[in-house]
Design a binder for these strands. Structure first.
Lengths: 174, 174
DNA sequence: CTTGCTGCAAAAGTTTTGCACACGT
DNA sequence: ACGTGTGCAAAACTTTTGCAGCAAG
C-alpha cells in the first residue's frame, strides 16, 4: 500500500496549457473525471469547493470538519476518496510535514513552495523555492531520473516559541 | 500528540565537539541517557547496535525484524521508545519519505542529506545538500526562526521505471 | 438502465499507553 | 531499595475497504 506521492506530472497531460488560466478549476476537475470514466457528484463538487477556499496547508480531517460546518453532509470515506482524485488531477499536492498524517495544499498553477515549520508550535510559513527547481533538475539529471516534484521543509524554533522558552528559563531561575 | 520532528539541535549541547571523533557512539548514548536520568539497558544497547549497522534509511518495523533476526528479544514497544531517545540524542534523524510511516537514518556526525525517491519503485538515492544549509540559514533569518534542521526530497521516475514504462507502451501498441 | 458513488461500519497499519513485573544504578 | 524499563495487550489514530442501497450519465 505504499502510496504514490502527489504525481503532479499527471496534471500536464490533463489540461492543455492554454486553458490553465481561463478555465475554472471546477470545469477542469469535471473534465478530468470524465476522461477517467468517473462521475461528477455533489459530494465531489462540495469537496472541491471547500478545498478551493484553503489558502494554507490542510489535512483530511480538518477538511471534513470544515465541510460539515459548511452544511455539507459527506462521509470521511468520501473525503479521502476525493482527495485521491484531486491529487491525480494535479489540483492539490501532498506536503510532507510529519510522518503521521498527510498534509495537502492547493497546487493548481502554483509553483511548489518550501515550508518553514516551528518544531514547538507547528506554525507553518511558506516561502518561494526558485533555486530548488534548478537543483531538482540537476540532481535528477545526475541520476538519470525524470523529475516529478520536490519538497523542501525547514524546521526551526519560531520567535514566539523562543520567547516562551526564555520565560521558562526565567521561571526555573526563581 | 504531534511529534517533534528530529530535533538535531539537541545533539549539539549533548557532546563536546572534541569527543565526536574519538568517542564510540555507544558511550555517547550512555552519557546522554545518564544526563537525562535514564538507564542504559540491554535492549537499548542492542537497538543502538543494530541501528549503527544501517547504511540507509530504515523504518521502525524493519528495525524490529532485524533485531529479532539477530537473536535479540525485544518488543515493538521498546523499539519505538528507544527510537525516540536516539532521535533526542541526535544519533538518528527522521527522514520524511511518505506520510504513512516514519523513516529514519543514522545521522551521527553526518551532514543532512537530500533524498531522491522514485515514485514507481520507491528506490532512494541520497545526495549531498551543501547549498541547502545556506538556504536554511537565510530562510530562518528572514522569519526570525532559530534553525534546527531541514529535509529536501526530490520525486522522480528512476531509469528502471522509465524502461518499464516504455515496455508497457510497446505492449499496448501491439 | 448501467456503472460508478456514497455511507456505514469494520478492517488495516502504524504508533502509543496502562499495567504488572523485572532490572539497572 | 528506588525509580525506570520492559513486554504484553489494548487503545488511539489515520486511512482503506466491503457491501447494500443510491444516483449520475
Amino acid at each position: 500500500m505504499s502510496e504514490t506521492p502527489a504525481p503532479n506530472a499527471a496534471a500536464s497531460p490533463a489540461v492543455p496549457a492554454d486553458d490553465l488560466l481561463i478555465t475554472p478549476i471546477c470545469a477542469i476537475f469535471r473534465r478530468f473525471l470524465k476522461r477517467q470514466g468517473l462521475k461528477f457528484t455533489t459530494e465531489r463538487a462540495q469537496t472541491l469547493d471547500v478545498v478551493l477556499g484553503k489558502e494554507r496547508v490542510f489535512e483530511a480531517d480538518e477538511l471534513l470538519d470544515e465541510m460539515k460546518s459548511a452544511g455539507h453532509r459527506v462521509s470521511r470515506a468520501t473525503v479521502y476518496r476525493t482527495l485521491k482524485h484531486l491529487l491525480e488531477a494535479g489540483i492539490i499536492r501532498e506536503v510532507l510535514i510529519d510522518s503521521n498524517k498527510a498534509h495537502y495544499e492547493l497546487s493548481f498553477g502554483k509553483a511548489p513552495k518550501g515550508h518553514l515549520v516551528c518544531v514547538e508550535t507547528q506554525r507553518i510559513v511558506e516561502f518561494p523555492t526558485a533555486e530548488l527547481d534548478a537543483l531538482m533538475q540537476r540532481i535528477c539529471e545526475e541520476n538519470g531520473f525524470d523529475p516529478v516534484s520536490h519538497r523542501f521543509v525547514v524546521y526551526g524554533v519560531s520567535p514566539e516559541a523562543q520567547k516562551a522558552e526564555q520565560a521558562e528559563q526565567a521561571d526555573s531561575d526563581s
